[in-house]
Nucleic acid binder design. Structure first.
Lengths: 250, 250
DNA sequence: CGTGGGTTTGACTCAAGTCAACCGACGTGG
DNA sequence: CCACGTCGGTTGACTTGAGTCAAACCCACG
């Protein structure tokens, strides 16, 4: 804890990582920026680490920063008064956090693994947003993408069975992984589950136990197999797709 | 009702309604436009009526237009292969339809009442979007608002009970109505349900029967009363809020 | 090798879905 | 003017999928 915090503050102090070497350079909010805009962002950026389980922001907080996730995984969530929790989105590297113009956060955002963020003071960012011709359109595009993802999930949460939810999640994860690693879609895709059963259940609107049971059933049915608690192999992508009940799969 | 339809089809033929007299002028995508931009929009706009039940767009369609809803109510939805349907959002006057830059629709959008739209050819609109300093930020703001709404609904769909869902819907509707009509929040708020039980069930991720039962129960519990099938009176807003289980209500 | 967090599995419960009958308002046509 | 059909809504009886509670399990780690 202390060691880690020390590490973060080191990063915070010395780091002026070169944007051109940035791993999320071509996908993040800055991806369309010309050298002059990139330079302006470079001036105002600072890096910050969040450890696993740490809150990046929480409901009602007045955010001083917006920014991009550089590495790690974070979850956006909301809860009911008795603690029932729903994960509203998973943030991956290059995803944007914060809403320019609305500094008060409407969500909890928590690091699910160690997370590194590239942050901009919200006021400075808003100012640049009003001038830059590249920043606004990119943010709009990213926001539309998030809206599409959220609505896809609404269909899952409102209308899919537990088995369909798991199948959809695994299928989506497999597609993301193969795209990311530019792998061919073949038989026996190997996945490393980045989430615990509990987190997964909060993402799918289920309980831990139901997630566990449905994974077992998919395994018994030969569609996937499970090694340990995090290694999943998909044997039959088209069978998995069929289990999602999505329109396009029929 | 008939008068309204007549009025609208007249509009379709002759219409070049003056933007300054437009009922959604101060809320729609154009709300921040200066006279010159407004003029450009005015040049490219056409009005179109959709009758109740008619598709405004459907999944996979290549949209020729984007635009604003001027009057009526429409529903955005997605379905599974066996017909299970989830409503992803309700469109009210001043709401925007379409995604500039992505002409292929990812949703079904259906008129739930007679709907009037103010439409812009998508290519022309995109061009203007790149030049106008007012259009982009407003669209971004509207998209963020929709994202917030969608995520609020994800919590409802994933984690709330049937009773909580109904309470949340009624509470939200009451807030909207009182805001819209600038009414004080007092006891006995009268609502006219704009949706059938079936549509409501597709919005809340329930069946028609469950919606009906929960409304009856809320009525028996004295929180609301139901006159006919569309007139609902809320007797106790704070009791209703308590039934939502939302964080802020506790 | 113990200890503990994450996970699996079983037995039971219950909220919501399914299936079906019925109700009541409305519009149409004999 | 009444009979009829339709459509949306309500209610009841029954079923079921997912939740709850609890015990056992399995590595991973110190």
């Amino acid at each position: 804890m202390d060691a880690h915090l020390l590490h973060s503050s080191q990063l915070e102090n010395n780091s002026k990582r070169d944007c051109s070497a940035c791993p999320i350079r071509h996908n993040a909010i800055c991806s369309r920026c010309q050298p002059d805009e990139l330079n302006a962002l470079d001036q105002m950026k600072t890096y910050r680490m969040f450890e696993k389980g740490e809150a990046i922001t929480h409901i009602g907080e007045n955010m001083a920063y917006v920014g991009s996730l550089v590495s790690g995984v974070a979850a956006i969530s909301k809860s009911l008064e008795d603690g029932r929790k729903q994960i509203l989105g998973i943030l991956l590297p290059s995803d944007f956090v914060g809403r320019p113009g609305h500094p008060v956060s409407t969500y909890d955002v928590v690091a699910e693994t160690p997370v590194e963020m590239c942050r901009f003071p919200i006021a400075s960012f808003e100012k640049l947003l009003n001038q830059s011709p590249a920043l606004g359109p990119r943010l709009l595009e990213k926001t539309f993408d998030e809206l599409d993802t959220a609505r896809e999930w609404m269909l899952l949460l409102g209308r899919k069975t537990a088995r369909e939810k798991l199948a959809t999640f695994l299928h989506m994860l497999a597609i993301k992984m193969t795209r990311l690693h530019a792998m061919p879609i073949v038989a026996d895709i190997q996945l490393e589950l980045p989430l615990t059963r509990k987190v997964l259940s909060d993402y799918l609107g289920l309980t831990m136990e139901t997630v566990s049971r449905q994974l077992s059933r998919l395994s018994k049915d030969g569609i996937i197999s499970i090694k340990g608690q995090r290694q999943i192999t998909i044997h039959d992508m088209s069978a998995l797709l069929a289990e999602t009940s999505d329109e396009r799969s029929g």
